[in-house]
Computed example of a mutant assay.
Amino acid sequence: MLSTKVLAPSKQFARSLASLGGVRSKHTVPDLPYDYSELEPVISAKIMQLHHDKHHATYVANLNVAEEKLAEAQAKNDVSAQVALQAALRFNGGGHVNHSIFWQNLIGEKNGGGQLHDGALKTAIEQQFGSLQKLSASVNGKTAGIMGSGWGWLTLNGATGKLDVITTANQDMPSSVGHVPLLGIDAWEHAYYLDYNNVKVDYFKNIWRVINWKDVAKRYDDAVATYNASKN
């Protein structure tokens, strides 16, 4: 008999989607918290507009369609249709969640981009990696090694409560492997090609100039609090 576990998004996946508007409600593309030109010269306004208004919007549109079809299949108790929709839910749902984090992870240099201030996150980075420079080298090295499209991540490992550096393929989310996303680097070509052509290593190097460390630090504090509460 077919397991019903594959007939709906996982709890972690559902929570990620719910935080962006609810699994059964219509998803929308979040507004950018800055102008398209905010991240120049690291990321051009043209890329930001295409990336946000076209690519992210496509994930959202396709996710809404997939969830409508899932609801119809569940109402009809059509198990085969529910199973067939899982790939679309995972891909487009991940694309929506990952990009929604990505926009918040970035900020222009003139507004504090690239500046990691004293605090719990900085202490953890220095204890585990030695320095921010060594952390960025680790993230860039793993992200550059992705075969095809995907993401590089700084996460909180849900099993250990420690910082971790991982990659995910395509639009898979860190939550799918038990990690809490703190900082995501989009390694899809649409994120950099108009500016950097095939020299993606320059994109990976320069993006650290526009990281919104206040956002990453807040995600870290929340993730640590949740982890500690789960152990009590």
Score class of each variant (00 low, 15 high):
Val6Ser: 11
Val6Lys: 15
Gln12Asn: 09
Phe13Met: 10
Phe13Ile: 01
Ser16Asn: 09
Arg24Cys: 15
Arg24Lys: 13
Val29Met: 01
Tyr34His: 15
Leu39Trp: 04
Glu40His: 12
Pro41Met: 12
Pro41Thr: 10
Ile43Tyr: 00
Ser44Ala: 09
Ala45Met: 08
Lys46His: 08
Ile47Cys: 07
Gln49Tyr: 11
His51Arg: 15
Val65Trp: 08
Lys69Trp: 03
Ala73Val: 00
Gln74Cys: 05
Gln74Asp: 07
Lys76Met: 04
Lys76Asp: 04
Leu85Asn: 06
Gln86Ser: 11
Asn92His: 13
Gly93Asn: 04
Ser100Val: 11
Ser100Gly: 07
Trp103Ser: 09
Ile107Ala: 01
Lys110Ala: 07
Lys110Leu: 10
Lys110Gly: 07
Gly112Lys: 09
Gly119Leu: 10
Ala120Ser: 13
Lys122Cys: 05
Gln127Thr: 14
Phe129Ser: 03
Ser131Val: 04
Ser131Ala: 15
Ser136Tyr: 05
Ala137Phe: 08
Ala137Gly: 01
Ser138Arg: 14
Val139Phe: 01
Ala144Ser: 12
Gly150Phe: 06
Gly152Ile: 00
Trp153Leu: 06
Trp153Phe: 08
Gly158Cys: 04
Gly158Trp: 03
Thr160Cys: 11
Val165Gly: 03
Val165His: 01
Asn170Asp: 12
Asp172Asn: 03
Asp172Pro: 03
Ser175Pro: 08
Gly178Thr: 03
His179Tyr: 00
Leu183Cys: 12
Leu183Ile: 12
Gly184Ser: 09
His190Glu: 11
Asn197Asp: 09
Asn198His: 14
Asn198Lys: 13
Asp202His: 05
Asp202Leu: 09
Phe204Thr: 02
Asn206Asp: 02
Ile207Thr: 05
Trp208Cys: 04
Trp208Arg: 00
Ile211Val: 08
Asn212Thr: 13
Trp213Tyr: 12
Asp215Gln: 13
Arg219Ala: 09
Arg219Asp: 04
Val224Cys: 09
